[in-house]
Computed example of a mutant assay.
Amino acid sequence: MQVDQEENTKVRHRMWKELSKSPFVMIGLVGSHDHHEPMTAQLDPDADSEFWFYCNKDNRVAKGGEAMAQFASKGHDIFACIHGTLTEETRQEIFDKYWNNQVEAWFEGGKEDPNVMMLRFDLKDAEIWEGDQSLTGKFKMLTGQTIDAREAGKHAEVTL
C-alpha cells in the first residue's frame, strides 16, 4: 500500500531509528558483478540523508560511486533498499568522530593503519517496507485467509 508524503516521512524516520539500533547493511556498487557485503554504518542521529563506513582501501566498494544498500531491522518489521552514492570521506573531524573500539578491532594499525579509509553514503532515494500488520491482518494470516494490502503494513518510496 502506497502512503502519502506525511506517512512517507514517518516511515523514513522509523527506518532511520531502526537503522540506528542495528546499523548493519548489505552494500554494493551499482553495475558491479561483485556480491554485496555486510558493513556497519556509522550514523549521525540528527541526520537522515547520509551515513559512513570504515573500510580497507582495497575493499570492493572503496572506489566509490553509485551504490545500493539493503537493510532489515532487528525485529524484521522494517525492510529498505537504499540508493545513493559512496564517496571517500576526507574530513578528519568526521573520521575521528565515529572512530570507536569496535571499528578499531577491524584495523590492525588502528586509526593510523595506512589501509583504512572512510566512505560517506549520500542517500538519494529509498524504498521502505514497514511490516507492521494490523490485528485483522495477523488473524487472517494465522487462519490462512487472504490479507488485504491495507492490513499488511506500509510501503514508501522516498526521495531524500
Rank of each mutant, 00 (worst) to 15 (best):
A69C: 07
G75D: 15
A67T: 02
L135T: 11
D46A: 13
Q102C: 10
S20M: 03
S20A: 05
F51N: 01
D48F: 15
D46P: 07
N8G: 06
E112K: 13
K21L: 06
C55H: 08
L123C: 08
R14T: 03
Q2F: 07
A149E: 13
C55R: 10
G137K: 08
K124N: 15
F107S: 08
L86W: 05
G31C: 02
D122L: 03
V116H: 03
N59Q: 10
D132N: 15
S73I: 05
K10I: 04
T40H: 00
M118R: 02
L19W: 00
A126S: 07
G131Q: 12
L29M: 03
Q70S: 10
M118N: 02
K74I: 09
D58N: 14
N101S: 14
L142F: 14
K10Q: 12
K63S: 15
G137R: 14
Q133V: 14
L142V: 13
G65N: 03
K17S: 05
H13T: 08
F71H: 01
G144H: 09
S134F: 06
L29S: 04
G144F: 11
R60E: 09
N8Y: 06
F95S: 08
F71Q: 00
F24E: 02
H35S: 14
Q133L: 15
G65V: 02
H36M: 06
G137H: 10
V61A: 13
G31L: 00
A69H: 07
T40M: 00
R150W: 15
G131H: 10
F95I: 14
E151W: 11
M117T: 09
D58W: 05
C55V: 11
K57M: 11
R91E: 13
Q92A: 12
A105P: 10
I147K: 07
M15T: 00
V158Q: 00
H83E: 07
R14V: 01
E151L: 14
M117I: 06
E89R: 05
N8K: 09
M117R: 04
A149L: 10
V3D: 01
D34C: 07
G110S: 10
Q102E: 13
R120N: 06
K140E: 08
A41V: 00
T146Y: 14
E50L: 03
A80D: 02
Q5I: 09
A126L: 04
G153P: 08
E93C: 07
G109N: 06
H33D: 14
T90M: 08
S49H: 13
L43W: 00
K124F: 09
K124Q: 12
T85A: 01
G153Q: 08
C81I: 14
F51Y: 04
T90A: 09
R14P: 07
H155D: 04
N8P: 05
M1Y: 09
V25E: 00
G75P: 07
G84L: 02
K138C: 13
V158G: 04
D113F: 04
S20Q: 01
D96Q: 15
N100V: 08
F95R: 09
E108Y: 13
R14W: 04
F71T: 01
K74Q: 14
G31K: 01
F95L: 10
Q42C: 02
A80Q: 02
E127Q: 05
L135D: 11
V61W: 03
E130D: 11
G31N: 01
P114Q: 05
R150C: 08
Q92F: 11
V158D: 02
